[in-house]
């Protein structure tokens, strides 16, 4: 690259362009390769009895239904708690928070929580939820631990979406004699919903794929849960156990396909929403 004096600028420019195209292609190839490899190796395993069956012999045979159900339960608990709190926090930060030390601390807390490694959240969940509060290895412990992980994400996305709603809309509502909350609830939040939705859906994707947080909070039972206080083994943890304990590569590939399909569908849905509603205020 320092050969500028030996090679003409036009040539080095061309070479650089080729290199840049190549690096972008490599990035796309890596993605395609990983997805393709998993799909090709695992798609044959996935059928109805795999999806709807129960595992036998620690998962070496049978299906993954309890793990899918477990993942779903954990995700629902996490989102049901994270979404209202996260949106509430975002509204406060975007619209109510005065410029004060307290607000600074709150904002710092959100940023800080976003940076906590998931395994540390897992440790905390174990110490606080499983032991201290006595929830045991359970859906509620795992779900709440996941909530701690997705909460900062929900806050950030919602806050951005709320702030993106034009000031004029708020003024219009105030000028009609609306209170602050009426304005928030009736015009600002509806305007921010597409952005918040996208964020929430991406949050669901994160929650579904997360492993370290739930390893020692949700348990590893392969039985169907019957209450919030039952342990479950989420699909990604199931995949980890299958692969790392060498129980069954076939089942591991199959589980990967299912997990990947869930996560990709969710991400595509988020992209679609963004495309469809993203420019609500861009129009004339």
């Amino acid at each position: 690259m320092t050969a500028g004096t030996l090679i003409s600028p036009a040539t080095s420019n061309k070479a650089a362009m080729v290199m840049l195209w190549a690096s972008a292609s490599i990035a796309v190839l890596i993605l395609t390769f990983i997805l393709g490899y998993i799909l090709i190796r695992g798609i044959g395993v996935v059928n109805l009895s795999f999806l709807l069956g129960s595992p036998r012999l620690s998962g070496a045979e049978g299906g993954v239904l309890p793990a899918i159900v477990g993942t779903f339960c954990l995700m629902v608990v996490a989102m049901l708690s994270a979404v209202p709190i996260g949106i509430g926090a975002a509204i406060y930060l975007a619209e109510y928070a005065p410029k004060s030390v307290m607000t600074g601390i709150i904002t710092f807390g959100v940023e800080c929580l976003a940076g906590v490694p998931s395994i540390v959240i897992g440790l905390f969940g174990y110490a606080f939820l499983v032991i201290y509060l006595g929830f045991g290895f359970s859906i509620i412990s795992g779900g709440l631990a996941l909530m701690f992980m997705v909460l900062p994400w929900i806050v950030r996305v919602s806050e951005e979406s709320i702030k993106a709603v034009p000031m004029g809309i708020r003024e219009g509502s105030f000028a009609l004699g609306a209170t602050k909350w009426q304005t928030m609830w009736r015009v600002v939040l509806p305007g921010a919903v597409p952005g918040i939705m996208t964020g929430v859906i991406l949050g669901v994707g994160k929650a579904i794929g997360e492993t370290a947080v739930i390893m020692f909070t949700a348990g590893s039972s392969l039985l169907m849960p019957s209450s919030l206080f039952d342990p479950v083994r989420a699909l990604p943890y199931h995949l980890y156990i299958l692969a790392s304990e060498g129980i069954s590569d076939q089942m591991a590939y199959g589980s990967s396909v299912v997990l990947l399909a869930m996560v990709l569908l969710i991400n595509l849905a988020a992209i679609a929403i963004q495309k469809r509603y993203g420019r609500q205020y861009g129009r004339k």
Binding site: P166, G168, I169, E171, G172, S173, A175, V187, P190, G191, Q280, Y281
Partner: peptide, 9 residues
Amino acid sequence: FQKPNPFPM
């Protein structure tokens, strides 16, 4: 207002 500000509804 200066700029028309209909609500998105």
